[in-house]
Amino acid sequence: MAYIVPSLRETLEDRELYTRSSLSDVTCRQCQARVMVRKNSEHHTSIQWTREAVETCAVFSDLDQREDGRPVHSACPQLVASIEYAVSEGMVTVGAGVDPAGLDRDRRADD
């Protein structure tokens, strides 16, 4: 049972759009961890990890060995560098923002 159930079908589409659209595949050049990245702008970054990617990340594995565990907010500098590289190589588009207006267009096209 979901905890708050949307009443509109479009809400589910918005949810898909905001969480899954305009993502680019980036592989860490150090450890091969694969994540999904979106860059709305130069200073914005959104990184979606998977459990496998976290387990693959060498920096995180080291941090996991610490007595009080890995601080959740620690970023992986290797991955940050890999994303910067992917941006510089044009493999991640900067300005790949999301807007439900795109969905409106699709819906109208369906009608």
Partner: peptide, 28 residues
Amino acid sequence: RWYEQFYVDQADIEPEMVERFEFEVDTT
């Protein structure tokens, strides 16, 4: 999506509810 994990049965927790996600806001 993260918060929803606490409102579904433990068996129904989707991987994406608990998978790591990072987000840096551009405040420029």
